[in-house]
Design a protein around this nucleic acid. Structure first.
Lengths: 144, 144
DNA sequence: TTATTTAGTTGACTTTGTCAACTAAATTTT
DNA sequence: AAAATTTAGTTGACAAAGTCAACTAAATAA
């Protein structure tokens, strides 16, 4: 492992952080903040989940999330219901309004990626996808 | 461009954002915040630069940066000096203390990357680097 | 059954980031 | 060259994001 290799990883990280930052900022033009969007996105993946499950995926402060969920409820995006199995936990489900919001965020995000890929030739796009997949694979299963 | 392709880009972005987030959080254990660390890093790349040059690279609010630089000065990390060529601009240079701080952040960051790469076989590491480079290339020169 | 852990909430913050209005120097327009 | 515009940076006044510690109540372990 040479020092230049480390530097090129760092360089890539800077580069990619910028790209993602640009994408995120555009989505932020919507009425939801980035953390709100992330949580809505997670709520939309699971049909019903608890705050804990969201925390396991997103890694934000639980008090922060708690307040966010309270606000989501009062603005009619989710419903909260004490879990039948675990009296401490709260089951969270998107209302139709919440689903609509999640759907719109999703659409905006897809559009962003589309725009990002638009100037790239089909061939290069396929290459890109391959590289992304490989990277994820290497980083998630380091032992191969 | 199929919808699954878009989804796999999004999936990669989520994945990689998490990784970078973890790295950043570790560096944040130092006495500097993430934005402070970024600015120190930039100051360290150029031997002397203006606030504007930093803004071109980092894209944060100028008032935010201005305050940060004031604070850097009063804590002895940088020196500010009105530019000879442009009376509006301020030349920023790291003091020895500032260089030391930048150096320590750099070291911490390098260590983080090292740890991230450690569990990966040499061969896979080389693959990884290749993929990162290719991605950067495709995204920065879309027309090839 | 007492002790510990876990899910979530609440209060009281700090940090991070934004917006608009401003000064002063530089540049462009007329 | 004088007036108008742009650019670099600062400041005030906030809003958003995120953190920390103390708490309740349910679940689990000793």
């Amino acid at each position: 492992m040479k020092i230049e290799d480390i530097q090129s990883v760092r360089d890539f990280n800077r580069f990619y952080t910028n790209i993602i930052g640009l994408l995120d900022n555009h989505i932020l033009d919507s009425s939801y903040s980035l953390p709100e969007a992330r949580v809505l996105f997670e709520l939309n993946r699971q049909s019903s989940c608890t705050a804990r499950e969201i925390l396991n995926v997103i890694k934000i402060d639980k008090s922060y999330l708690s307040r966010m969920l309270t606000q989501f409820e009062s603005s009619g995006l989710i419903r909260k219901k004490t879990s039948a199995e675990d009296g401490r936990a709260v089951q969270l489900t998107l209302t139709p309004k919440g689903k609509k919001a999640a759907y719109e965020l999703d659409t905006a995000s897809i559009l962003q990626i589309k725009n990002m890929l638009k100037p790239i030739s089909d061939q290069a796009q396929q290459q890109l996808l391959l590289h992304l997949q490989k990277i994820k694979l290497i980083l998630s299963n380091p032992l191969t």
